[in-house]
Design a protein around this nucleic acid. Structure first.
Lengths: 201, 201
DNA sequence: GTCTATAAATCGATAGAC
DNA sequence: GTCTATCGATTTATAGAC
């Protein structure tokens, strides 16, 4: 076992901080979680946090980048394998139930956005990330409709905005009212597909 | 001019506090606005706030109740007068541009919900209000489709959930990225109406 | 690079005078 | 019912030791 270089060690504590911050932010929320708590739970002191992240929202952005990537990969995997359109919708429905139902993600994203939207150094980066994830979802839609031989009734980017926005809205409401079903999201996708079939004939 | 009774005076300062709190919460956000600031701007001291509202989130709920009612009325009025279906969609589009575009409302609603969702005395009331506003929107949809002689492709409550969720999601994203157009919301409504026509024939 | 100790500032909420 | 004064608790961020 080789000794860790300074860079490797630095990267490792950074990783560990992001990991435990993810868990805490998702479980308890961004505002309510102090950096003290993050540091302690990760096995460090607050000083270590500040030697890795200039501010709390810098850590917040890093956490969200990681969580967002995880969920995007998870979604892509969920719908990739399935067979025909109906099977893929079922796969999406199951994913939505676990992930839009996993209220923490959307809620964290939204709590962070609404709490930091006034900070001039954060705002443009939120916008960048929004466009990024919209493009990712649009690409996924393009890929899926190509595989299924369908032409959507609208540009894939518009479909992505619709699905993402609906998902965000649902996630927020489910954060305080878990009774609300994710069905609407699946319904929207299904209605898109129905209209796509008609077009492609 | 009669002297104000104790009750009237109390109601008046309560009104004034809600008014200025609305303005401040909408402009700057809920968390960032201190009760000190609300009190001063309304021409009172912090003690007056606490003699009218037990806690800050109690004031927050009162503010949201007022804002929500205002917007619901404004929406109902906007679509009430118009003529055929297309004219009503245009009216809705204009309303959405000004109100979903008026980022403050959605953002405040969402910031408050994500920030207070853990408080046991707030959470159930958020859920109550969600169901309430969903019912209001559903009623509006019922009324509209009856006037237009249309049968929607889904229960009006499902349509309400879809439109509300999409509106919330859009509003949140527009809070930090105003470039995002409200078009998707209008598109969704239009697609509902298109399918409604087909059903009613 | 990390830790300890502390600064600095804020804010929600309360107590008591009027 | 409102005002003044203050408590009490918290948190981000920094300074200096190791």
């Amino acid at each position: 076992m080789a000794r860790l270089s300074r860079k490797e060690s630095h990267a490792l504590t950074r990783e560990r901080l992001i990991s435990t911050a993810s868990a805490l932010f998702l479980a308890d929320g961004y505002n309510v979680t102090s950096l003290e708590r993050v540091a302690t739970e990760a096995g460090f002191s607050k000083g270590a946090v500040y030697s890795n992240f200039a501010t709390k929202h810098e850590l917040g952005l890093a956490v969200l980048d990681r969580v967002r990537l995880e969920r995007a990969v998870s979604l892509a995997e969920a719908v990739a394998d399935a067979g025909d359109a109906e099977a893929r919708i079922e796969a999406f429905a199951a994913w939505a139930e676990d992930n839009i139902g996993d209220v923490g993600w959307t809620t964290l994203e939204v709590e962070f956005a609404t709490s930091t939207r006034h900070l001039p150094e954060v705002r443009p980066r939120l916008a960048d990330r929004r466009r990024e994830i919209t493009q990712i979802v649009a690409s996924l839609i393009d890929q899926q409709s190509e595989e299924l031989g369908l032409a959507l009734p609208m540009p894939s980017e518009d479909a992505a905005v619709q699905l993402l926005s609906l998902g965000i809205g649902l996630g927020v409401q489910r954060a305080f009212d878990p009774e609300l079903p994710v069905r609407s999201l699946v319904d929207l996708l299904r209605s898109m597909l129905d209209r796509a079939r008609a077009v492609s004939r």
